[in-house]
């Protein structure tokens, strides 16, 4: 096994390559909350172009099947949930609602927006990093 920081750089480069592929091939920004949110809206009867919906669905499908491919290639996966049930519900609601209100999450503002030096994305990333770090600190004091 490589050291964690090398796996981090490598995995990060793959995430960046994914964003680059979607951008250069399709002209789309790889923001997972925007993509998933677009699908949710469409399912609930909102407007949306059929082409965009199909692309969004395929991107999400790629995410969903990636663990099977990773395991097939011999990768080891450990998923350790720290938070309990009620916290997971509250966290999920905040993540889903907040990412859409703020027009993006770790991928859209972090990987994509900040890399193009969008000031909105840089401000968004600084904000969610700050509240996330503060939340972790508060939960520990609790």
């Amino acid at each position: 096994m490589s050291p964690d920081w090398i796996n981090g750089l490598l995995g990060g480069a793959m995430i960046g390559a994914s964003a680059g592929l979607l951008l250069l091939a399709n002209g789309r920004i790889a923001g997972v909350s925007g993509i998933a949110g677009g699908l949710v809206d469409r399912v609930l009867g909102g407007a949306g172009a059929r082409l965009v919906t199909a692309e969004n669905a395929l991107f999400v499908l790629g995410l969903l099947v990636s663990p099977a491919i990773f395991a097939l290639l011999g990768g080891e996966i450990a998923i350790e949930l720290v938070a309990g049930g009620p916290a997971l519900v509250v966290a999920g609601l905040l993540v889903g609602f907040g990412a859409r209100l703020g027009s993006g999450c770790t991928s859209g503002h972090g990987v994509c927006g900040s890399a193009r030096l969008s000031r909105r994305s840089i401000v968004a990333m600084a904000t969610f990093m700050a509240t996330a770090v503060a939340t972790v600190a508060l939960v520990q004091v609790w």
């Binding site: 997972v32 938070a83 916290a87 905040l94 993540v95 027009s103 904000t127 996330a132």
Partner: peptide, 18 residues
């Protein structure tokens, strides 16, 4: 506001959409 809420949720569970 949206980013602040998102960050609180992210910090509670350590999970974001991707």
């Amino acid at each position: 506001g949206g980013s602040a809420l998102f960050g609180i949720g992210w910090g509670l569970a350590g999970i974001c959409p991707g």
